[in-house]
């Protein structure tokens, strides 16, 4: 009996121990469960924060991209604007260069025209200007004789013998230019020539002092390399109309007065001898 009782109490003891261990294990499991729950809660909380961060970062990057795109657009606009300004400056530079060239031509022509009081030299200078600055190959300078009302060639370059040496005021294109005082420019391609036509000049410029015509410059043919008249040519024509006229007129007057002075001087010398 005692033996049986001892076995039972031993078994109870063992059971209690097993139960205790079970209780301890259960306690541990509960703790572990608690820990896991806590960690899970932490993880959930953490992931909640990370999501917000990601959203924030994404938003910031989007904002930055937007800003940079805006800046890029502004820079492209500015670049285009500067390019446009550059083009304008380049065009302006070309214009200024051309203007500079024109002014140099006009200055030199005007300076040379008024550099002498010798009639022959004045004619030579006009020929030089028309040939070298305008690019004419066949041309003449005609002066008006007010007694006969005729235009006569006083200087020419490259013209053939068939050219008329004199033209009546009002006759043909040249005579009409002298009569009206209006310049004549032939229409069409000035280089399209089958030899010079001395009845149909390319250009005829009246030499005028105010409204008084004293002669004409007539161009029949241009140099082979001269393709067309440029703006400076028309400026030179209008400059020649006035300045060449005064240069020729004053040099002619000066030559006449010099001749008269010499005659008077000789006459006075003769009187003194007597």
């Amino acid at each position: 009996m005692d033996k049986e009782t001892g076995t039972i109490s031993k078994k109870v003891e063992e059971f209690l121990q097993v139960f205790k261990k079970g209780e301890e294990f259960t306690q541990e499991l509960l703790k572990e469960n608690e820990k896991l729950r806590y960690r899970l809660a932490q993880q959930e909380e953490g992931s909640k924060f990370t999501g917000r961060d990601e959203n924030f970062k994404l938003h910031t990057v989007e904002e930055r991209i937007k800003f940079l795109e805006e800046e890029n657009k502004n820079l492209l606009d500015r670049f285009r604007q500067v390019e446009e300004e550059n083009k304008d400056f380049a065009n302006r530079y070309v214009e200024v260069e051309a203007e500079n060239n024109n002014l140099a031509n006009l200055y030199v022509a005007s300076y040379q025209l008024h550099s002498t009081l010798d009639f022959t030299e004045s004619l030579k200078i006009i020929l030089e200007i028309v040939m070298n600055l305008i690019g004419a190959e066949e041309f003449s300078i005609m002066m008006l004789d007010e007694k006969t009302n005729e235009l006569t060639i006083v200087a020419q370059e490259g013209m053939g013998p068939e050219a008329r040496a004199s033209i009546k005021m009002g006759d043909g294109i040249i005579g009409k230019v002298a009569k009206s005082g209006e310049a004549f420019y032939r229409e069409g391609d000035p280089t399209n020539l089958k030899g010079a036509d001395y009845t149909h000049p390319l250009v005829s410029i009246p030499l005028k002092i105010k409204e008084h015509v004293i002669g004409v410059i007539v161009i029949y043919k241009l140099l082979v390399q001269k393709q067309a008249f440029s703006n400076v040519d028309y400026e030179l024509f209008s400059m020649l109309a006035g300045h060449a006229a005064t240069a020729l007129f004053s040099s002619k007057l000066y030559s006449q007065s010099e001749r008269k002075l010499t005659t008077i001087q000789s006459f006075l010398d003769l009187l003194k001898e007597k």
């Binding site: 140099a104 031509n105 200055y107 030199v108 022509a109 300076y111 040379q112 550099s115 200078i125 030089e128 200007i129 070298n132 600055l133």
Partner: peptide
């Protein structure tokens, strides 16, 4: 030989 051209070239 042309004074006009001499002046123009020198000018340039």
């Amino acid at each position: 030989d042309s004074p006009t051209m001499r002046q123009l070239i020198s000018f340039a």
